[in-house]
Amino acid sequence: MARVSVDISRRGGDSTFGGAQSCPACKQLLSSEQLEANLRVCPECGNHFRVGARERVAQLVDSGTWGEIAGNLRSADPLEFFDLRPYPERIEEAEYETGLAEAMITGTCRIHKMDVVLAVMDFSFLGGSMGSVVGEKFWRAVETAIDTHFPLVAICASGGARMQEGILSLLQMAKTTCAVELLGGVPVPFVTVLTHPTTGGVMASFATLADVIIAEPGALLCFSGPRVIEQTIKEKLPDDFGRAESNLDHGQVDMIISRLELKDRLVQILGMLEGGVACALEPLWEEEESRPGRRGTLAQALDRIKAFANPSRRSS
């Protein structure tokens, strides 16, 4: 099938329109420059607006260090799915509207000079739904993390499985879980950041299998969405149902971090985990120099640990 080429460079990755918009939480009128400069967090009330995948990368990554992985993967139409409109047309429209090729972008980058493999989902691409391409991209991100020993960070935003790929979309939950299990075989940190909203199949697979789970304030994080539950129990749910704060109270996430602090805190957490990684890779009692090829933050962490464990080495 020939892919109709659409000019996707004209539209940016973000989902807001030019001009001002009012904050749904505090009604404050905010200009789009103001919002973008404040990482799409309302300066008045701290409400977190949704962020597109490209903009998220720009927020987190040291400039000029992003190298995309598997950027050439595109959805096929294995079921020849046609509801009110054909699936390929929905894809094409999402490509046009978001400037993205899929609901997840993956790449290697540096965050505060730390090497990281990053996977970022975008809710504005068909609701951030997980189909074959998202599953395969996640798998390749994991492979890269295993090969390089760079930590893996996944920024999640998803309404669940991509219905138009039927059972194959459901099986991406199994696929991404197998990837996490493979990653578990090496001492490489895996951290997820759950943003508004992360639900369904993504929430019930890799998003909740990380070593450390971070949530953004106010994010809806659940398996079944509020509407489905309301239909089942025939009652209106409280506003805080499934929110990040409720998830924290019930022990489902490690912490809630404001987007304004995310970059710093992420690097802090990864750095602490990598301190452990260095120990696991090269036990302290082996007095050998680090093998060639190891570099960057990992080597530094290793040196720090050696210095800590054996202060006399510092003078030598």
Binding site: R3, N72, L73, R74, S75, A76, P78, G131, S132, V133, G135, E136, W139, E165, L168, L171, Q172, A174, K175, T177, C178, A179, E181, L182
Partner: peptide, 12 residues
């Protein structure tokens, strides 16, 4: 693992 890795159809 390989079986579930193969699950899915995409264009590359």
């Amino acid at each position: 693992f390989q079986k579930f890795r193969r699950m899915g159809v995409w264009k590359e």
